[in-house]
Amino acid sequence: MAFFNSLLFGIYSQTKQSLQGGVQTSCPQPQIIIPSAAYGGAIISFVLCPSELVKCRMQVQGTDSLVPKSSRYSSPLDCAVKTVKTEGVTGIFRGGFTTLLRESVGNSVFFTVYEYVRYHLHLKLQAESSQHRHLIDAGVGVVTGGLGGVAFWSAVLPLDVAKTIIQTSPDKSSTRNPFRVLNSIYRRAGLKGCYAGLGPTIVRAFPANAAAIVTWELAMKALGIRHG
């Protein structure tokens, strides 16, 4: 996650700067934020998909009592190697399209919420004493990152549910179309089934993304990089 977040924030910042054409503005511009975030999400999906496939398969293998221990993966590397041997190189990228959709849409939502909430909070707090500036900035980072994370997962959790099913299905010939998977879930369990695991995901999303944003902004300050 450290690598993926570094890649995502780096691509987002550079793409945003390129689209701005060197013109710095504090007011959020959705025509710049959304394509920058979607592009960053699309790029990281290519490295995120294989790692998530391994993670998901390692997580669910112990839940199926019908799978003998001899057939279980002994390590993440063992899982990756066996996947490539049995399913080919494309097997390790199973669920890639769904991951790309999740990351592109999700990060567009995340960075839009982050940029707008950050902008309006700073407008309200700009008159505060400079001696409390660091605490105020950290507080803004917590709120913007946390709300952005909650918005991300609220928007794309169904795609994540579909991705997990696609990546962990024992039937390797089953559909890789996330919309067919979600349609099947909806007919069987309704909207609630498409949002399975929402509670734990939201509980994790707020502190995790708050920490990521606060760290990102502190790092930019320490490096003398201006937030555009």
Rank of each mutant, 00 (worst) to 15 (best):
R102A: 14
R94G: 03
Q131I: 08
V142R: 01
G91M: 06
T86A: 14
S129V: 09
Q126E: 11
V140C: 06
A127T: 12
T99C: 13
V143Y: 05
E128K: 11
G139H: 04
G91N: 03
Q131L: 07
E128H: 14
L135E: 05
F110M: 09
R102Q: 15
L125W: 12
V143L: 15
I136P: 00
V113K: 01
L100Y: 00
H122M: 15
S108P: 09
F97Q: 03
Y114S: 01
G91I: 08
H120F: 15
T112V: 11
R102Y: 14
L125A: 04
S108W: 02
G91A: 01
G88D: 09
Q131V: 11
R94C: 07
L100V: 09
S129G: 08
L123N: 10
K85P: 02
F93A: 14
G91D: 05
V84L: 11
K85I: 03
G141A: 09
F93M: 11
A138F: 04
G106R: 01
N107R: 09
E103D: 04
K124R: 14
E103V: 01
T99G: 01
F93K: 08
V143D: 02
T83H: 00
F110Y: 10
V84Q: 11
V113P: 00
N107F: 14
S130T: 13
S129I: 07
G141I: 03
R102W: 13
G95I: 04
S130E: 13
F110W: 04
L101C: 03
V140T: 08
V105M: 03
E115V: 09
T112A: 10
R102S: 15
T144P: 02
L125K: 06
L135H: 07
T144C: 14
T90F: 11
L121M: 08
S130N: 08
G146Y: 01
E87F: 12
R118E: 09
R133I: 05
K124A: 12
V143Q: 04
K82M: 07
R133H: 15
V109M: 06
V81P: 03
R133E: 13
Y116P: 03
H132R: 10
G95M: 08
I92V: 15
V89T: 15
L135K: 10
V143W: 11
S108I: 05
S108D: 06
L121A: 01
R94M: 05
A138I: 15
A138W: 09
G139P: 06
V113Q: 00
R118C: 05
E115K: 12
V113E: 00
S104W: 05
I136F: 03
E128A: 12
K85A: 09
F110C: 04
H134D: 00
V105R: 01
G139E: 08
T83M: 02
L100E: 01
E87Y: 07
G106Q: 02
V89Q: 13
T90C: 13
E128Q: 13
F97G: 03
K124D: 12
V140D: 03
F93S: 06
G139T: 10
A138V: 15
G139M: 13
Q131G: 05
H132G: 10
T86C: 10
S104L: 09
K85V: 09
V143N: 04
V117R: 08
E103S: 06
I92T: 14
G95C: 06
V142H: 10
V105G: 00
F111T: 00
K85S: 11
L121E: 01
G88I: 08
A138C: 11
R133T: 12
G106N: 03
V89W: 15
F97P: 04
L123M: 14
H132E: 12
K85H: 08
